[in-house]
Protein backbone atom coordinates (compact mmCIF):
# COMPACT_ATOMS: atom_id res chain seq x y z
CA UNK A 1 0.00 0.00 0.00
CA UNK A 2 1.56 3.22 -1.08
CA UNK A 3 1.08 6.82 -1.98
CA UNK A 4 2.61 7.42 -5.35
CA UNK A 5 3.32 10.39 -7.59
CA UNK A 6 3.98 9.70 -11.26
CA UNK A 7 5.69 12.24 -13.52
CA UNK A 8 4.18 15.27 -11.85
CA UNK A 9 4.65 18.59 -13.56
CA UNK A 10 3.56 21.91 -12.13
CA UNK A 11 4.55 25.45 -12.89
CA UNK A 12 3.56 28.77 -11.36
CA UNK A 13 3.88 31.84 -13.55
CA UNK A 14 6.56 30.22 -15.65
CA UNK A 15 8.57 28.84 -12.75
CA UNK A 16 8.66 25.05 -12.69
CA UNK A 17 7.84 23.88 -9.18
CA UNK A 18 7.65 20.20 -10.01
CA UNK A 19 9.46 18.56 -12.90
CA UNK A 20 8.85 14.96 -13.75
CA UNK A 21 8.51 14.19 -10.09
CA UNK A 22 8.28 10.50 -9.32
CA UNK A 23 8.07 9.36 -5.76
CA UNK A 24 6.57 6.54 -3.73
CA UNK A 25 5.80 6.45 -0.04
CA UNK A 26 5.47 3.08 1.61
CA UNK A 27 3.13 2.23 4.42
CA UNK A 28 4.11 1.74 8.02
CA UNK A 29 7.23 3.80 7.48
CA UNK A 30 8.24 7.29 8.40
CA UNK A 31 9.37 9.08 5.25
CA UNK A 32 10.98 12.48 5.37
CA UNK A 33 10.99 14.89 2.43
CA UNK A 34 13.90 17.27 2.59
CA UNK A 35 15.37 19.86 0.27
CA UNK A 36 16.27 23.52 0.05
CA UNK A 37 13.66 26.27 0.09
CA UNK A 38 11.62 26.38 -3.08
CA UNK A 39 12.46 22.77 -3.92
CA UNK A 40 8.80 21.93 -4.33
CA UNK A 41 8.21 19.98 -1.12
CA UNK A 42 4.97 21.68 -0.11
CA UNK A 43 3.87 21.77 -3.75
CA UNK A 44 4.28 18.01 -3.90
CA UNK A 45 2.29 17.54 -0.72
CA UNK A 46 -0.43 19.91 -1.92
CA UNK A 47 -0.67 17.96 -5.17
CA UNK A 48 -0.90 14.60 -3.43
CA UNK A 49 -3.54 15.78 -0.98
CA UNK A 50 -5.66 17.40 -3.68
CA UNK A 51 -5.09 21.02 -2.72
CA UNK A 52 -3.33 21.77 -5.97
CA UNK A 53 -4.07 21.09 -9.61
CA UNK A 54 -1.09 19.72 -11.47
CA UNK A 55 -0.28 20.38 -15.10
CA UNK A 56 0.42 16.74 -15.92
CA UNK A 57 1.18 13.45 -14.26
CA UNK A 58 -0.83 11.30 -11.90
CA UNK A 59 -1.24 10.70 -8.20
CA UNK A 60 -2.21 7.45 -6.59
CA UNK A 61 -3.27 6.58 -3.11
CA UNK A 62 -3.24 2.84 -2.65
CA UNK A 63 -3.87 2.11 -6.32
CA UNK A 64 -6.68 4.65 -6.57
CA UNK A 65 -6.06 7.41 -9.09
CA UNK A 66 -6.57 10.57 -7.09
CA UNK A 67 -5.30 13.08 -9.65
CA UNK A 68 -8.67 14.71 -10.24
CA UNK A 69 -10.04 14.27 -6.77
CA UNK A 70 -11.04 17.04 -4.42
CA UNK A 71 -9.11 17.42 -1.15
CA UNK A 72 -12.04 16.21 0.95
CA UNK A 73 -12.42 13.11 -1.18
CA UNK A 74 -8.74 12.31 -0.73
CA UNK A 75 -8.98 12.95 3.01
CA UNK A 76 -11.83 10.47 3.23
CA UNK A 77 -9.57 7.83 1.70
CA UNK A 78 -7.61 7.93 4.93
CA UNK A 79 -5.15 10.79 4.51
CA UNK A 80 -4.75 13.52 7.12
CA UNK A 81 -2.41 16.48 6.79
CA UNK A 82 -1.05 19.53 8.52
CA UNK A 83 -0.09 22.79 6.86
CA UNK A 84 3.06 24.84 6.73
CA UNK A 85 1.33 27.75 8.50
CA UNK A 86 -0.62 26.29 11.37
CA UNK A 87 -4.31 26.21 10.53
CA UNK A 88 -6.73 25.99 13.39
CA UNK A 89 -10.20 27.32 14.14
CA UNK A 90 -8.77 30.14 16.20
CA UNK A 91 -11.87 31.17 18.09
CA UNK A 92 -12.60 27.72 19.44
CA UNK A 93 -11.08 25.67 22.23
CA UNK A 94 -8.47 22.96 21.88
CA UNK A 95 -10.95 20.18 22.40
CA UNK A 96 -13.45 21.68 19.96
CA UNK A 97 -10.73 21.77 17.33
CA UNK A 98 -10.02 18.09 17.89
CA UNK A 99 -13.67 17.07 17.99
CA UNK A 100 -14.19 18.61 14.57
CA UNK A 101 -11.96 15.84 13.23
CA UNK A 102 -13.92 12.96 14.68
CA UNK A 103 -16.57 11.74 12.23
CA UNK A 104 -19.97 12.15 13.75
CA UNK A 105 -23.58 11.45 12.92
CA UNK A 106 -24.38 14.92 14.17
CA UNK A 107 -22.88 16.25 10.96
CA UNK A 108 -25.83 14.92 9.07
CA UNK A 109 -28.59 17.42 8.63
CA UNK A 110 -31.49 15.37 9.91
CA UNK A 111 -29.66 14.29 13.01
CA UNK A 112 -28.50 17.82 13.69
CA UNK A 113 -32.03 19.17 13.43
CA UNK A 114 -33.62 16.53 15.59
CA UNK A 115 -30.69 15.99 17.95
CA UNK A 116 -31.62 12.35 17.86
CA UNK A 117 -29.17 10.22 19.80
CA UNK A 118 -26.53 12.92 19.68
CA UNK A 119 -25.95 13.36 23.38
CA UNK A 120 -24.46 9.90 23.73
CA UNK A 121 -22.34 10.37 20.65
CA UNK A 122 -21.11 13.74 21.87
CA UNK A 123 -19.96 12.19 25.14
CA UNK A 124 -18.23 9.38 23.32
CA UNK A 125 -16.42 11.76 20.97
CA UNK A 126 -15.52 14.07 23.81
CA UNK A 127 -13.85 11.19 25.64
CA UNK A 128 -12.03 10.17 22.50
CA UNK A 129 -10.83 13.72 21.94
CA UNK A 130 -9.52 13.83 25.49
CA UNK A 131 -7.62 10.59 24.87
CA UNK A 132 -5.97 12.03 21.80
CA UNK A 133 -5.05 15.17 23.72
CA UNK A 134 -3.66 13.03 26.52
CA UNK A 135 -1.54 11.15 24.01
CA UNK A 136 0.05 14.33 22.68
CA UNK A 137 0.29 15.98 26.07
CA UNK A 138 -2.30 18.71 25.64
CA UNK A 139 -5.04 17.32 27.84
CA UNK A 140 -4.64 19.99 30.52
CA UNK A 141 -5.21 22.66 27.91
CA UNK A 142 -8.42 21.12 26.57
CA UNK A 143 -10.54 24.19 27.27
CA UNK A 144 -7.97 26.78 26.24
CA UNK A 145 -8.82 28.85 23.20
CA UNK A 146 -6.54 28.06 20.28
CA UNK A 147 -5.16 31.61 19.98
CA UNK A 148 -3.89 31.42 23.56
CA UNK A 149 -1.59 28.50 22.88
CA UNK A 150 2.11 28.79 22.22
CA UNK A 151 3.31 28.14 18.68
CA UNK A 152 4.59 24.71 19.58
CA UNK A 153 1.31 23.82 21.28
CA UNK A 154 -0.60 24.98 18.24
CA UNK A 155 1.43 22.68 16.04
CA UNK A 156 0.81 19.86 18.45
CA UNK A 157 -2.90 20.58 18.32
CA UNK A 158 -2.90 20.46 14.54
CA UNK A 159 -1.20 17.12 14.77
CA UNK A 160 -3.66 15.89 17.39
CA UNK A 161 -6.45 16.81 15.00
CA UNK A 162 -4.87 14.55 12.37
CA UNK A 163 -4.65 11.72 14.85
CA UNK A 164 -8.30 12.10 15.77
CA UNK A 165 -9.35 11.44 12.19
CA UNK A 166 -7.91 7.92 12.49
CA UNK A 167 -6.41 8.34 9.04
CA UNK A 168 -3.88 5.70 8.04
CA UNK A 169 -1.64 8.27 6.37
CA UNK A 170 -0.39 11.34 8.18
CA UNK A 171 1.25 13.95 5.97
CA UNK A 172 2.91 16.63 8.04
CA UNK A 173 4.37 19.89 6.80
CA UNK A 174 7.28 20.85 9.05
CA UNK A 175 5.95 19.32 12.27
CA UNK A 176 8.94 20.30 14.41
CA UNK A 177 10.17 23.54 12.91
CA UNK A 178 10.08 26.56 15.19
CA UNK A 179 9.23 24.67 18.36
CA UNK A 180 11.23 24.19 21.54
CA UNK A 181 13.73 21.28 21.76
CA UNK A 182 11.67 19.72 24.53
CA UNK A 183 8.60 19.65 22.32
CA UNK A 184 10.69 18.33 19.43
CA UNK A 185 11.67 15.35 21.59
CA UNK A 186 8.01 14.81 22.51
CA UNK A 187 6.97 14.98 18.91
CA UNK A 188 9.59 12.45 17.82
CA UNK A 189 8.42 10.00 20.48
CA UNK A 190 4.82 10.49 19.37
CA UNK A 191 5.65 9.94 15.72
CA UNK A 192 7.43 6.70 16.53
CA UNK A 193 4.56 5.30 18.57
CA UNK A 194 2.02 6.31 15.96
CA UNK A 195 3.80 4.30 13.30
CA UNK A 196 4.05 1.32 15.66
CA UNK A 197 0.25 1.37 15.73
CA UNK A 198 0.19 0.76 12.02
CA UNK A 199 -0.05 4.22 10.54
CA UNK A 200 2.26 5.73 7.96
CA UNK A 201 3.88 9.12 8.15
CA UNK A 202 5.28 11.41 5.49
CA UNK A 203 6.75 14.66 6.71
CA UNK A 204 8.54 17.67 5.30
CA UNK A 205 11.32 18.95 7.48
CA UNK A 206 14.35 21.20 7.58
CA UNK A 207 15.62 19.95 10.93
CA UNK A 208 18.14 17.31 9.80
CA UNK A 209 18.72 16.13 13.35
CA UNK A 210 15.05 15.25 13.74
CA UNK A 211 15.06 13.58 10.35
CA UNK A 212 18.05 11.45 11.35
CA UNK A 213 16.36 10.44 14.56
CA UNK A 214 13.00 9.39 13.31
CA UNK A 215 12.83 8.84 9.55
CA UNK A 216 13.16 5.41 7.99
CA UNK A 217 13.29 6.74 4.46
CA UNK A 218 14.47 10.09 3.13
CA UNK A 219 13.45 11.67 -0.17
CA UNK A 220 15.53 14.63 -1.30
CA UNK A 221 13.88 17.18 -3.55
CA UNK A 222 15.66 19.95 -5.36
CA UNK A 223 14.22 22.31 -7.99
CA UNK A 224 11.16 20.15 -8.37
CA UNK A 225 13.01 16.90 -8.94
CA UNK A 226 13.67 13.92 -6.74
CA UNK A 227 17.43 13.92 -6.40
CA UNK A 228 17.76 10.80 -4.33
CA UNK A 229 15.57 8.56 -2.19
CA UNK A 230 16.45 5.73 0.13
CA UNK A 231 17.21 4.66 3.68
CA UNK A 232 18.01 7.55 5.99
CA UNK A 233 21.54 6.58 6.93
CA UNK A 234 22.62 6.09 3.34
CA UNK A 235 21.02 9.24 1.97
CA UNK A 236 22.26 11.54 4.69
CA UNK A 237 25.78 10.14 4.41
CA UNK A 238 26.09 11.36 0.84
CA UNK A 239 28.15 14.45 0.25
CA UNK A 240 26.00 15.81 -2.55
CA UNK A 241 22.96 15.79 -0.27
CA UNK A 242 24.74 17.75 2.44
CA UNK A 243 25.95 20.09 -0.33
CA UNK A 244 22.46 20.75 -1.50
CA UNK A 245 21.57 21.58 2.04
CA UNK A 246 24.43 23.62 3.24
CA UNK A 247 25.37 25.03 -0.15
Amino acid sequence: MTIRAENLEKHFNGVKALRCTNVEFNESKITAIIGPNGAGKTTLVDALTGFLDIDSGRCFIEQIDTTQMRPDQIARLGVARTFQEVRLVWGESVIENVMAAIPSRGEQFCYALTNFGLKAEHDKNYTKALEVLQFVGLRDLADTIATDLSYGQQKLLEFARCLATEARWLILDEPVSGISPVLVESMIKILRSVVKEGRSIVFIEHDIKAVKEVADVVVVLDEGRVVVAGATAEVLARDDVMEAYVG
Binding site: G50, F51, P71, D72, A75, A80, F83, G91, E96, R161
Partner: peptide, 18 residues
Protein backbone atom coordinates in the same frame (compact mmCIF):
# COMPACT_ATOMS: atom_id res chain seq x y z
CA UNK B 1 -18.44 22.80 14.15
CA UNK B 2 -18.12 22.01 10.46
CA UNK B 3 -19.87 25.27 9.56
CA UNK B 4 -17.41 27.17 11.73
CA UNK B 5 -14.52 25.46 9.96
CA UNK B 6 -15.97 26.47 6.63
CA UNK B 7 -16.38 30.01 7.90
CA UNK B 8 -12.92 30.43 9.33
CA UNK B 9 -10.74 28.35 7.04
CA UNK B 10 -12.23 26.11 4.39
CA UNK B 11 -9.01 24.21 3.92
CA UNK B 12 -9.35 22.77 7.41
CA UNK B 13 -12.78 21.41 6.64
CA UNK B 14 -11.47 19.95 3.41
CA UNK B 15 -8.45 18.41 5.08
CA UNK B 16 -10.78 16.76 7.57
CA UNK B 17 -12.70 15.12 4.77
CA UNK B 18 -15.87 17.21 5.10
Amino acid sequence: RVLHCIRDDESIALALGK
